[in-house]
């Protein structure tokens, strides 16, 4: 029975559904795996195609774009008015962490796809069913001389993605536990550890060549 002042349901509702929880995981996964892949590429890449290091780079280059694209879809699904999401792209309130997140995602997502195409350039050329991508690859190939700059830029945006999710939650007053500056640090740490784990796992499962 409701108390005399009425139903309390609206005060006990969970406003951000499972979709946001999964998105936060996917954003951490994407940025973590690409950061780890880049660190490996810069420090441990020895031009041999059979090492675990090479497998980790390939894994990061696949996992990062796929998970962020799925995550973006979930972000829109969770909106109360999904078809109005374009307002997010038109109006930017820089004091809102969500708006900053949209900006970071707009930078990050295309670059991470470019990175994937650069890493898998030869494989894409090999398979005929990927023929429509060849034109894209040719365009990306033009960027080869800028590869290092793109990688640095990608690393910075990935770091922004992994930390903004923490700042996003720490701006909430309604849930005092989350209203804490430790949260962004926790998010970065967990995304990097997730990146290491997933790169080793998918690297060993799919990209390890036994020869």
């Amino acid at each position: 029975m409701s108390p005399i002042w009425g139903s309390m349901a609206q005060y006990e509702m969970v406003h951000w559904s499972w979709a946001i929880a999964v998105y936060l995981f996917l954003a951490g996964l994407s940025s973590g795996s690409i950061m780890v892949a880049l660190l490996v590429k810069w420090n441990r890449h020895e031009r041999s195609n059979s090492s675990i290091w090479d497998a980790m780079i390939k894994s990061g280059a696949v996992v990062a774009p796929l998970s962020i694209l799925l995550g973006l879809l979930l972000l829109i699904v969770d909106l109360g008015r999904p078809l109005s999401f374009y307002w997010l792209l038109i109006r930017y309130n820089i004091t809102s962490v969500m708006s900053l997140g949209v900006l970071f995602l707009l930078l990050y997502t295309p670059i991470v796809i470019v990175f994937m195409l650069l890493v898998f350039e030869r494989s894409v050329m090999k398979y005929t069913f990927l023929a429509p991508l060849v034109a894209l690859i040719q365009a990306v190939k033009e960027l080869h001389s800028y590869a290092k700059i793109i990688e640095y830029f990608l690393f910075v945006t990935a770091l922004c993605i992994s930390s903004y999710t923490g700042f996003l939650l720490s701006a909430l007053y309604a849930i005092p536990l989350w209203n804490s500056p430790i949260l962004p640090i926790l998010f970065i740490t967990s995304s990097i550890s997730l990146g290491i784990a997933v790169n080793i796992l998918t690297g060993l499962l799919f990209f390890q060549k036994y020869d």
Binding site: W16, G80, R81, W87, L88, R91, S96, M98, L172
Partner: peptide, 30 residues
């Protein structure tokens, strides 16, 4: 926190909601 300025303050400092641009992201509720 409102990413689209749907929640805004008028000249007297009262907080209103512009229903046209509210995308119901629920950030403000939280």
């Amino acid at each position: 926190v409102c990413p689209t300025f749907a929640s805004f303050q008028d000249k007297d400092g009262l907080v209103h909601i512009d229903e046209r641009v509210c995308i119901t992201c629920k950030y403000c509720i939280l």
